[in-house]
Write a protein that binds this DNA or RNA. Sequence first.
DNA 1: CTGAAAGCGCTTACAG
DNA 2: CTGAAAGCGCTTACAG
Lengths: 347, 347
Amino acid sequence: MTELVTIKDVARRAGVSSATVSMVLNRVSASRISEATAERVRLAAAELGYAPNLLARGLRRRRTDTIAVLSDQIATTSLAPHMVRAIQDVAARNGLLVFMVNTEGDREVERSAVAALNQQRVDGFVYACLAHRVVEPPAGTGPNVVLLNGRMHRLRYPTVVPDDRGGARAAVSELLRHGHRRIGFINDRRNGLAARLRLVGYHEALSAFQVRFEPERVRYVLPGLDAGAAAARQLVEEAGVTALFCFNDRVAVGAYRGLRQRGLRVPGDVSVIGFDDHEFVADFADPPLTTVSLPHYAMGEWAVSMLVDLINGADGEPVLQVMPCEVVRRASVAPPGDQRYGLVKPP
Amino acid sequence: MTELVTIKDVARRAGVSSATVSMVLNRVSASRISEATAERVRLAAAELGYAPNLLARGLRRRRTDTIAVLSDQIATTSLAPHMVRAIQDVAARNGLLVFMVNTEGDREVERSAVAALNQQRVDGFVYACLAHRVVEPPAGTGPNVVLLNGRMHRLRYPTVVPDDRGGARAAVSELLRHGHRRIGFINDRRNGLAARLRLVGYHEALSAFQVRFEPERVRYVLPGLDAGAAAARQLVEEAGVTALFCFNDRVAVGAYRGLRQRGLRVPGDVSVIGFDDHEFVADFADPPLTTVSLPHYAMGEWAVSMLVDLINGADGEPVLQVMPCEVVRRASVAPPGDQRYGLVKPP
DNA sequence: CTGAAAGCGCTTACAG
DNA sequence: CTGAAAGCGCTTACAG
């Protein structure tokens, strides 16, 4: 780095004090500086290629125009790239630089990250989770915090989460509208927030169509390929379902596999809907998987916008923003026993 | 944020000067401070929960213990999560905080990001690319730069890239060892660094086994599902290949599809190898795809370690580190016409 | 062994 | 309309 030019250099060249330079460059309108002087200052600054030292400014202003994203793992998995992208976009648009730290959910790592970030005087925190769940953000963050894809037991910060319940309701309704009545649900046995909410959505859709809820049609698994395959086989054989709503796209791909092992075709024999709209999973499935998209971009956008508002002094009323989850229609849903699909994949 | 405690508060409570506090807390051994005084200072600091303001320290020390990761898109795609994780891990281990900015490859965005990061006085830059390619990092970064998964035309900074050539050679050798001699290669038609290097590896493997290179066995496509499917069909029908080496795992999944459309089974009729070891693509493929892994974690680790060395004054000799790419064996390779596989997926 | 002073590079009242 | 001064919170020679 060549020797950096400071505000003093600019002042000297423009023949004014550094206070004046600061004021014109920061457009402090309260101080009526003559246009001639201002012009001289701007010229000098441009000629010298002056750029203020943000450490000094931050030290003085007590505001750094930086934010921290604390996440359990979102930046290190393939699941939520759009969340990260949205955060970056909105931050850039607001002139904010972002510190990103992954804690892998470790409380101790979290604690020390918060300490370090505070010492850097970040203006605020986004606390982001990979999976929609109940969280307890670490202490010591100060008031400028927004929660992304996680919510506290008792709301304390502005929070944005996906509408898992509505998404599930939409997915199951999609199946019902195609004529299915015996609809299986392969849910997450860890029974987190997402699992519980999606179960509610499943219930709601059924009752809207006046279909009785049959407990044997829901199975709880540790989401994965093999578990999905096994659950799909059981639901078809033991509960006679004609359609499957799956906790996520990976389980759905597992279901595909289980069904194929039984010589059953998707969607000719059994329809399948997933959740997540997981890139390269849902769209790469064969047939391409109808699923429910998680509004990662919209959530990330909302979170940072809200944080910017907080930083700018908005009152931190702990609103809860629930972002809609939409059905993405591809090719894994058809009416039950639809013969048109009998020929798609010759046995 | 409650009123923050400064070094003066600690000094007052310990009955010493702030210089003394600074020295004991920073373990400046040159200054022989009595153990009694030091103990008093440490106690006072602990009691007050003192944590130095890093902006002030950075301003004074001209070193901030922060680094910047400038990437075209690595943090916003699902392709290289391990790269990000490695960066975070090594940074944390070295007490560094990391600014992450995605430029989407836009030169103007890059330029202004570098400016902002310089104003924040970051200690160094990692310039990271999603795909191994030739790059020209932006000017103005200063000397502490390392290149990750991209290399300059004429090496100027320490650089780490994957051994695409060796990876391709290993993949094709794997096929050759299984007895294949007519091996197709579906390459990337954009003909970037990776494509060219993998073609060399393909050549080398063939000649090591004394198999003639037949131009008609390599096809150039825009990597994607449909293109992969079409190329696979053509290579099988027109060039009679019994095995396919694919530019990436997504192309390989496309190839699966093309082969299936022709009633051909993997690996019973045709063996397939991909590249990337793309999570949820290679392992979720049916059958699970044998592929070549990209050493994302190792590359990220190397890059930040090297950057730390540079920051600590190592000479910035522009070494080029080539990280090995290994074959990940799954279930898509078998000897040509292997009948044991005839029954795996009944037609 | 420890303190007083200067200085990192800004911004912000305060004068005039 | 503009400058001199103080101060943000540290660290680093320099004295003694």
